[in-house]
């Protein structure tokens, strides 16, 4: 199996299914511990953002996640019908202020920028489509 598709509800309890999917994908593709953690973290951050902000009116919605292993790359696609949000177009987080002034926020998106190799976003037919690639290294 080289492809996993998940239909997630906008609920934080779905994070455990993401973790299971990443683990399964890691086994199939030979993804090491470090990159598995990175992939899980990035997907966690993105889905957590969607759960918190994408559906201001509440109610249950679905987020479509696909993970695919192509040659030496893991390709992820996240589709949601929440409010338009381009995560590639966000300000850098505060990484330098002193403790008392340090602002929190934007770190999840920053992890995505640091940990993934290819990032692509488009808004199409009321759908946010985010495609991410991670090149598999041989690091453990």
């Amino acid at each position: 199996m080289q492809r996993i598709e998940l239909l997630l509800r906008n609920d934080l309890s779905e994070l455990s299914r993401i973790a299971q999917a990443v683990e399964a994908m890691a086994d199939v593709c030979g993804l090491g511990m470090k990159q598995s953690f990175h992939l899980n973290l990035v997907l966690d951050e993105l889905v957590t953002n969607l759960v918190h902000y994408a559906y201001p009116e509440g109610s249950t919605h679905h987020i479509h996640l696909t993970l695919e292993c192509v040659d030496t790359t893991i390709r992820c696609e996240l589709r949601d019908q929440g409010i338009a949000f381009n995560p590639l177009d966000q300000a850098e987080p505060d990484l330098e202020s002193a403790l008392e002034d340090r602002a929190i926020g934007g770190l999840g998106i920053y992890f995505m920028q640091q940990m993934m190799d290819d990032l692509h976003y488009e808004r199409c037919d009321n759908t946010n489509i985010l495609r991410l690639g991670m090149r598999i290294t041989n690091e453990l």
């Binding site: 973290l41 951050e45 403790l99 008392e100 340090r102 929190i104 770190l107 999840g108």
Partner: peptide, 20 residues
């Protein structure tokens, strides 16, 4: 075994209050 930015946020809040 695992921390995300939601966990980091709590640590930062605690550090600020402890400093105060």
């Amino acid at each position: 075994n695992y921390i995300s930015s939601a966990g980091l946020r709590v640590i930062l809040m605690a550090a600020k209050r402890i400093k105060v």
